[in-house]
Design a protein around this nucleic acid. Structure first.
Length: 488
RNA sequence: GGCGCAUUCGUCUAGGGGUUUAGGACACCUCCCUCUCAAGGAGGAGAUCACCGGUUCGAAUCCGGUAUGCGCUACCA
């Protein structure tokens, strides 16, 4: 009899989730969707001191942005709730008390100062730091005495002194730990909150989690969790420890590596679909060539067997490329919709969207093919929105041209274009190509000069399309302005 | 210090004993297309598969050791 697949993403609300954390959420989600199981979000808010207001909402919004919907959790609920650990304190206390009465755990009255000094001393003597089990065998009398002193104790787990724990990690295979390398970890803190170890074991059991897919940093504490499952008489879930995501210097991702929070990737103009695709490929692969995959393809093909065991460095260049691929795959309407919020951030582009949406919609396809992020859109389109172009007049003089010939080309262009009734790609081409011949210029020279006159740049979308989008009036005005620059 | 995990082009990765002159992608370079840019196409450069030893007729692939990196070693998760 196979139990239903139930996996969870269990973030702690101590700040906006970083990409590694979100990648863990993504793998859990893909796993759940692949097997038709449940994806559960559980908020591990058991550290009162590190808790940051508002981050639960940030976490949920990040999941929503990426399209990672959850079947149980905040705002959805379900029969295994509540999904905030701070609302489940009784459950952890009961478990802790049960362990104490069973003799698998004990009250510890050691002060933080004592523990700190002890650790410092151990490190100094190059001994393995760890709790010295001072309170493990206190007599009833000693306990009463400490209690009378008003010390609120913590509950510690009695780690076995010998033997070993072995388990099969779904990604790494069999792993063995010696029990005597483990110290007596704290289960319940003196403020009544559980530590991660107790809370996750109790909840994973109560919520009937079938597979725990979490970051590699948890591998070392898995034997302790297994011991806890055993002491509590719970059947443990299956474990899979995912490779970590590292910064460019191979160290744990942190602020100095630039954008780490997933929110920043939204702000910087990445599409959720690209982000999902890219993040999945950080630690998972389908085969030796497939890279661009839709959400459904990812779900259909995802499997733990193809998850790699090595930590990966976040490669921004590749993300940019992939985001560009996704941007280009959008329809014009879709692109307008996704780009709009970013355009609104820019003064001139924002005004254009409000005053002349049609104009913006005409322009956008020219930008869509060139943008790699949505934040680049306003910048790439900037010349479409400004009243007066700013550029170095020398740019008007294309390769192997003189100031005079450039000037002449502008005047001739101005003359021809002003006579033209229609102002579309084909008609513009029909006018300007022959003009180059007429002037004895290469098309590149004439077009280059006109491009600078009309856009202020040497690199821009194709000339005729650009001019058609700008319209006759703007083009002639800009050419006139260019001619004025020469006469100055 | 102890314990654990890992180690294929700069980066993400394919590969699971002979099919491999180690494949793909990003980035880089050259050329083509071309009005510039972008996109696209064709090439190029880039990995003694961390190292040493073993198993084997044969090892990137299996085993052992070493090195290096990372993680854990909190009343943080």
């Amino acid at each position: 009899m196979k139990k239903p697949v139930r996996v969870r993403y269990a973030p702690s609300p101590t700040g906006a989730p970083h990409v590694g954390n979100i990648r863990t959420a993504l793998f859990n989600w893909l796993f759940a969707r692949h097997y038709g199981g449940s994806f559960i979000v559980r908020i591990e808010d058991t550290d009162v001191a590190r808790k940051v207001e508002g981050t639960v909402e940030t976490i949920l919004n990040s999941l929503r942005w990426l399209g990672l919907d959850w079947d149980e959790g905040p705002e959805v609920e379900g029969k295994y709730g509540p999904y905030f650990q701070s609302q489940r304190l009784d459950l952890y206390r009961e478990a802790a008390e049960r362990l104490v009465s069973q003799g698998d755990a004990y009250y510890c009255y050691c002060s933080p100062q004592r523990l700190e000094e002890m650790r410092a001393e151990q490190v100094r003597r190059k001994q393995p730091p760890g709790y010295d089990r001072h309170c493990r065998n206190l007599s009833e009398q000693e306990r009463k005495q400490k209690e009378a002193e008003g010390i609120s104790p913590v509950v510690r787990f009695k780690a076995p002194l010998e033997g070993q724990v072995r388990f099969t990690d779904l990604i790494r295979g069999e792993v063995v730990f010696e029990n005597n390398t483990m110290d007596d970890l704290v289960l319940l803190k003196s403020d009544g909150y559980p530590t991660y170890h107790l809370a996750s074991v109790v909840d994973d059991h109560l919520m009937e989690i079938s597979h725990v897919l979490r970051a590699e940093e948890w591998l070392s504490s898995t034997p302790r969790h297994l011991l806890l499952y055993q002491a509590l008489g719970f059947e443990p879930p299956q474990f899979a420890h995912l490779p970590m995501i590292l910064g460019s210097d191979r160290s744990k991702l942190s602020k100095r590596h630039g954008a780490v929070s997933i929110v920043e990737y939204y702000k910087q103009g990445y599409l959720p679909e690209a982000m999902v695709n890219f993040l999945t490929l950080l630690g998972w692969s389908l085969d030796d060539k497939t890279e661009i995959m839709s959400r459904q393809e990812l779900i259909d093909n995802f499997s733990l067997e193809r998850v790699s065991r090595t930590a990966a460095i976040f490669n921004r260049d590749k993300l940019d490329w992939m985001n560009g691929v996704y941007i280009r795959s959008l329809t014009a309407d879709e692109f307008f919709n996704v780009a709009q919020p970013y355009l609104m951030e820019d003064k001139l582009a924002g005004e254009a969207v409000i005053l002349d949406e049609k104009y913006v919609r005409d322009i956008l396809p020219l930008i869509q093919e060139r943008a790699r992020t949505l934040t680049e859109v306003a910048e790439l389109a900037q010349f479409f929105f400004v009243e007066e172009l700013e550029y170095d007049a020398n740019l008007l003089i294309a390769k192997n041209m003189s100031r005079e010939s450039a000037n002449q080309a502008l005047k001739a262009g101005q003359q021809k274009l002003s006579q033209s009734e229609v102002f579309e790609v084909e008609s513009l081409e029909a006018i300007l190509r022959p003009l180059a011949v007429e002037l004895g210029l290469k098309t590149g020279q004439l077009f280059g000069t006109l491009r600078v006159a009309v856009t202020g740049r040497t690199a821009a979308p194709p000339l005729f399309q650009t001019m058609a989008a700008l319209g006759k009036e703007r083009c002639l005005k800009r050419i006139e302005a260019a001619i004025q620059r020469f006469s100055r």
